[in-house]
Amino acid sequence: MDRRKFLLQSSLLAAGAVLPFKSLLAKKQGDFTTVRRNVGYFTERGGTIGWLASPNGMAVVDSQYPESAKNCLNGLQDKTDQPLNLLINTHHHGDHTGGNPIFKGVAEKMAAHENVPKLMKKANEESEGEGNTAFPETTYSENWKMDLGDETVHTTYFGPGHTGGDSVVYFEKANVVHMGDLVFNRMNPFTDRPSGGSMKNWVKILSTVADEYPSDAIYIFGHAKPEFGVTGDKKDLDVMKNYLSAVLDYAQKGIEQGLSKGEIMDKKSLEEFEHFLYADFWTLSDNLGVAYEELME
């Protein structure tokens, strides 16, 4: 994928546009799944929404798109009479923030890493005002937390990964971790370099997160190949980390052999990671191009 196309798709993602990878984002309507202790996830169209719905606290992690955001909010209001206390955006891409206008004025707080509103505003400028203007107003540089009844929600920034503003969200009492797009479960991930993403640091983040939280934590992933699902455990984080490491290693060996970027990118799959092939939005070849650029800096 050339840089122009990369930048265009990144901008459209942030603006909440529907891209050619619609099949990747399409999910059946109104799918609420409880994970543990009043915490669960919602899938319809876009990045997986995490939620807390208890008698004394309600929170949402990510907002998908306006229509699915409405469906999520309506469903949560059937689960609890508690008003929406908190919306967290794990990062700025439109399939995670496009529903923000639905929650604005409903959520008492809208929170994200400090880079998220900056990146949303940049995307809005690039789309000539067609983008999302419901920006998170509560921001943080490293970590932040909020008590919601008998649950405490923590957000942590471990540095650039998928983008330059990814948060990991932890529901402490439920012991559930929402990874946002720091995990694409068994599918080729997208590293948004124009928005500050870093494949090398992404590998470090996955190692750190695996050590940071309890061994029995349940993880919610932003996207997944359907047969593998949007929840998992530390082993799934390791698979993702090993894939990114393998991409970087392959690119590094090619550089050492004097191969060009195009020659390094001319690869359809990596041994032991053939199952990562899914959809055509972002491929192994694209990831090898990202790795090459990053390693050559």
Rank of each mutant, 00 (worst) to 15 (best):
H223A: 10
V168K: 01
T208Y: 09
T163Y: 06
L237Y: 04
A134S: 14
L244D: 03
W144G: 02
P117W: 00
H162P: 00
S141Y: 07
K121M: 14
R186E: 10
R193Y: 13
E256C: 01
L182V: 02
L248W: 02
T152G: 05
E172F: 04
K235I: 06
D236M: 14
S167A: 13
G180P: 02
G222W: 00
L244Q: 09
T191M: 13
A224F: 07
Y250V: 11
M179Y: 01
L148D: 05
E151T: 04
S215V: 13
H223L: 13
P226M: 02
G229T: 09
H113T: 06
Y157M: 05
S198L: 10
E137A: 07
V247Q: 07
V176C: 00
K122L: 15
Y243M: 09
M120I: 05
K118C: 06
A246T: 15
F190P: 01
S207A: 15
P136G: 07
S195T: 07
E151K: 01
V177S: 05
V230P: 02
D238I: 13
F228R: 08
M146I: 14
W144Y: 14
A111S: 11
D150Q: 12
N143T: 13
P189V: 00
K225W: 01
K122T: 11
L206I: 08
Y213K: 09
T208D: 14
V168A: 08
K118Q: 13
D216I: 00
M199W: 01
F228G: 00
E126L: 15
S198D: 13
Y243T: 12
T155V: 14
P194C: 07
Y250Q: 10
K121H: 08
T208L: 12
N242C: 05
N143P: 03
Q252T: 11
R193K: 11
V153M: 08
L244Y: 03
T156S: 08
K234E: 02
G197V: 05
Y250K: 10
T208P: 08
